[in-house]
């Protein structure tokens, strides 16, 4: 699975992307599916098809990769929301958040990381603070020190992952990522 978090990072070449997740003001092209949202809601679009879904608050999407939980919020993110997405059998939680101040951004990042690790679910966070976007991607036990914090930056990111089903559940393995 190739996941782009943010906007298209290379102008000249179109990397084949399975899923683009971006904030609503950042149009992207060249992918198979798009999840574009903000704190008020989201659109899920499958390229070359009539399939479009709209949602807000807390939604579960059935995608070709599996169930994806989407959370749109202008308030603080509670860990119980992410826990509930795991309980709903989502294999990934995606959060669109508008943060009022920088302390909320940092707190949300900490909560996403801690919850991802405790409940063993990848979490992608797009947070908008003062019209500046920040992206974070947490996958339990991944990254150099197995910290689970794969990516945390203000730049977009292309993440290459293997998604495999094992007896104990779905397992994400991050092969590489490129920052744009």
């Amino acid at each position: 699975m190739r996941l782009l978090l943010g906007k298209q990072i290379v102008l000249k070449e179109f990397y084949h992307t399975d899923l683009v997740v971006s904030w609503i003001e950042e149009p992207v092209s060249g992918a198979s599916t798009y999840l574009i949202g903000n704190d008020k809601g989201f659109m899920y679009i499958v390229a070359n098809s009539d399939e479009i879904h709209y949602g807000n608050d807390f939604d579960l999407l059935n995608t070709p990769f599996g169930k994806v939980a989407v959370i749109c919020s202008s308030k603080g993110i509670h860990w119980e929301l992410i826990y509930n997405s795991k309980k709903s059998d989502a294999l990934l939680t995606i959060i669109f958040q508008r943060a009022a101040n920088i302390s909320d951004v940092l707190l949300t990042k900490a909560i996403c990381w801690g919850t991802s690790r405790e409940f063993n679910i990848p979490v992608a966070l797009l947070t908008n603070h003062a019209e500046h976007l920040q992206y974070q991607f947490c996958v339990p036990n991944q990254d150099r020190e197995q910290s689970g914090l794969v990516y945390d930056s203000t730049a977009s990111c292309m993440i290459d992952m293997d998604v495999s089903k094992t007896e104990s559940g779905i397992f994400f393995s991050v092969k590489s990522f490129a920052e744009g």
Binding site: F58, L81, N84
Partner: peptide, 13 residues
């Protein structure tokens, strides 16, 4: 401030 009741109903699509 964080103790606001939140409904966790994930709607399905």
């Amino acid at each position: 401030a964080r103790n606001v009741p939140v409904t966790y109903n994930f709607k399905g699509h």
